[in-house]
């Protein structure tokens, strides 16, 4: 059942992303993308990462995408401008790159066939947190510093003169 669900969710993700990148309006792209991320979060859940799944929704769908939406709306409110749309010719390099990347990875991935162990158990929150705050304590500190810098930077950029 979960296997089937995985493929369904994969299809939703891919379709949502596809719609997002070809959307004519940025807001619509955001909506499609949130859909896609939702499906992705469920995939994470299936892959035994409930915490990542939750944070995917909270941070990605709930914060980052909202931030995008916010900025888009603010820009539209400030000065409604016609954003340049990609012409058909602009899609060619994108499509070529897409095919190149997907083809390459498919070849590489297909050359080895490791399956996810059938009996694998999801990683519990406790396990996750212990790894996070012991083995990767330094990384947490670094990330927190980075967030602080980003905060300061955003404040600096956003201040009124």
């Amino acid at each position: 059942m979960e296997t089937t669900l995985f493929y369904i969710l994969s299809a939703v993700t891919v379709f949502g992303t596809l719609c997002a990148i070809t959307a004519r309006q940025a807001v619509r792209a955001i909506v499609y993308l949130v859909t896609s991320f939702f499906a992705l979060a469920l995939i994470f859940y299936i892959l035994g990462a409930p915490l990542v799944a939750a944070f995917e929704v909270i941070i990605y769908a709930g914060a980052i995408m909202v931030l995008f939406l916010f900025v888009i709306m603010m820009l539209e409110l400030g000065s409604p401008e016609k954003l340049p749309k990609p012409r058909l010719a602009d899609w060619w390099p994108a499509v070529i790159l897409f095919l190149a990347v997907v083809g390459s990875v498919t070849v590489i991935a297909a050359s080895r066939q490791p399956a996810i162990a059938p009996g694998f158990t999801a990683i519990s929150v406790r396990e996750f947190s212990q790894a996070l705050f012991t083995r990767y304590g330094i990384a947490v500190e670094a990330i927190s510093m980075q967030l602080l810098f980003a905060l300061v930077g955003a404040l600096y950029l956003g201040r009124r003169r």
């Binding site: 799944a53 709930g62 939406l69």
Partner: peptide, 25 residues
Amino acid sequence: DLDVGVLFFLALSSIAVYGIALGGW
């Protein structure tokens, strides 16, 4: 009974934003 229940709640409450945002837009 999700083991990340609190996070589930927070996730849903953050999703709830979209209705308002998109409705207005």
